[in-house]
């Protein structure tokens, strides 16, 4: 697989004001010190990936950004404002969309209802119409299955629904947590193609992945997490060349 094929041109020196800035965040699960000083930036128009082994803190980082958890210390700024302690449901309206780990679709609700949930905070009918069309254009499969219960979809379709649902919040920043998890290689390719499309349509993306090869293929920059710390942050191209990264994450 040629990981770089079709990848957006890497931004070597992303400039300007970051859309998202996490500064030295520490988060805990009870007494477990899960995030031990995470600092990362995501600039407008970027795809950034967060790589690391199981338990490194990738999911916790995303949950802290989207407000499902709050850091004990450190600050998170989004779009120029401090969001460190803003609860998740308020961040949605500010432009943070999160497709969580394990998809977490509403299994007993129909595909259409799941997408309507994504549009929960929005009221502009014309915009909503556009976004439903956009999601159905990205995932024609969801239109076919729109009246079916979400729980009866296949794994790949559920992932599409989870991403589509997050897109219905019309995010400025889309957080994707392991979109490739449990999917066949063909489906993984498709999902990453869609991530490229979503980015091309103007959404900034922060994607957590185990599949480092695919993630570094689409991302401009990446961070490597180990036991709650960022040990490396660089352009995707440099990370692909890095012997340690190759050894640990790219099976080289």
């Amino acid at each position: 697989m040629t990981a770089a094929a079709g990848a957006p041109a890497p931004v070597d020196n992303p400039g300007g004001v970051p859309l998202l800035r996490a500064h030295d965040i520490h988060a805990y699960y009870g007494h477990i010190h899960a995030l031990q000083g995470i600092t990362l930036d995501v600039f407008p128009g970027e795809i950034v990936t967060l790589l690391g082994a199981n338990g490194a803190g990738k999911t916790t980082t995303l949950r802290t950004i989207s407000g499902l958890m709050h850091p004990r210390t450190g600050t998170i700024t989004f779009d120029g404002t401090d969001i460190t302690h803003v609860p998740a449901h308020r961040l949605v309206t500010r432009g943070v969309g999160h497709a969580p780990e394990g998809r977490r679709i509403f299994g007993r609700m129909t595909v259409l209802e799941n997408l309507q949930m994504g549009a929960y905070t929005r009221h502009n009918k014309a915009e909503l119409e556009m976004d439903f069309d956009r999601v159905f254009a990205l995932f024609p499969r969801l239109r076919e299955r729109s009246s079916q219960a979400g729980g009866t979809l296949s794994g790949g379709e559920q992932q599409m629904l989870a991403i589509g649902r997050a897109l219905m919040t019309r995010p400025k920043l889309l957080l994707l947590d392991e979109p490739s998890m449990g999917l066949s290689p063909i489906l993984v390719e498709q999902i990453f193609d869609v991530i490229r499309d979503i980015h091309a349509q103007g959404t900034t993306v922060l994607v957590v992945e185990q599949n480092a090869l695919m993630a570094l293929g689409v991302a401009h920059r990446g961070y490597i997490l180990q036991t709650g710390r960022i040990v490396l942050g660089d352009t995707a191209a440099n990370l692909r060349q890095n012997p340690e990264v190759q050894k640990a994450y790219l099976g080289g």
Partner: peptide
């Protein structure tokens, strides 16, 4: 209704409902 959907989604998955903007 929209609020009915909010109730059902909260019953199914509280975190996911919050990520949709539902104040649980």
């Amino acid at each position: 209704t929209r609020l009915g959907r909010a109730m059902r989604s909260t019953a199914i998955d509280r975190d996911a409902a919050q990520l949709m903007g539902v104040d649980i």
